[in-house]
């Protein structure tokens, strides 16, 4: 493996590396639910989340993880969702969150 020049060094576990190739599943995720791209991580979904009373369920974070290619992390966290749909009813960007979570949880 050749060492790449970043101009700085960062612990690998800490960094998000957008130079690495994105997982192939990501494209199909966005293709099947294009509204995912509209998320601005405002946090409304997490604020209203029914599961969020008890567990670490923050949809906007799942989506950020997906965008950064951290699928493994994302899949594990999606499992807490109850699919109640409150987030979707209040999402200011019109993201079909329930559909997105369903697909995330089975990647």
């Amino acid at each position: 493996m050749t060492k790449q020049y970043f101009g700085f060094s960062v612990l690998e576990q800490r960094s998000v590396n957008l130079d690495s190739e994105m997982p192939a599943e990501l494209e199909s995720l966005y293709q099947k639910e294009p509204s995912l791209r509209a998320c601005i991580a405002c946090g409304n979904c997490a604020a209203v989340c029914s599961a969020g009373h008890f567990a670490e369920m923050q949809f906007y974070r799942l989506n950020v993880m997906a965008r950064r290619g951290l699928l493994h992390e994302m899949v594990g966290k999606a499992a807490a969702c109850m699919l109640c749909g409150r987030c979707q009813m209040s999402c200011p960007r019109g993201v079909n969150i329930r559909h997105a979570v369903l697909m995330m949880s089975q990647l």
Binding site: A41, C42, G43, N44, C45, A46, A47, G52, Q58, Y60, R61
Partner: peptide
């Protein structure tokens, strides 16, 4: 009020 503190990532 209940909110999501998105910078903390916590309710």
């Amino acid at each position: 009020v209940k909110a999501e503190d998105t910078l903390m990532g916590r309710p």
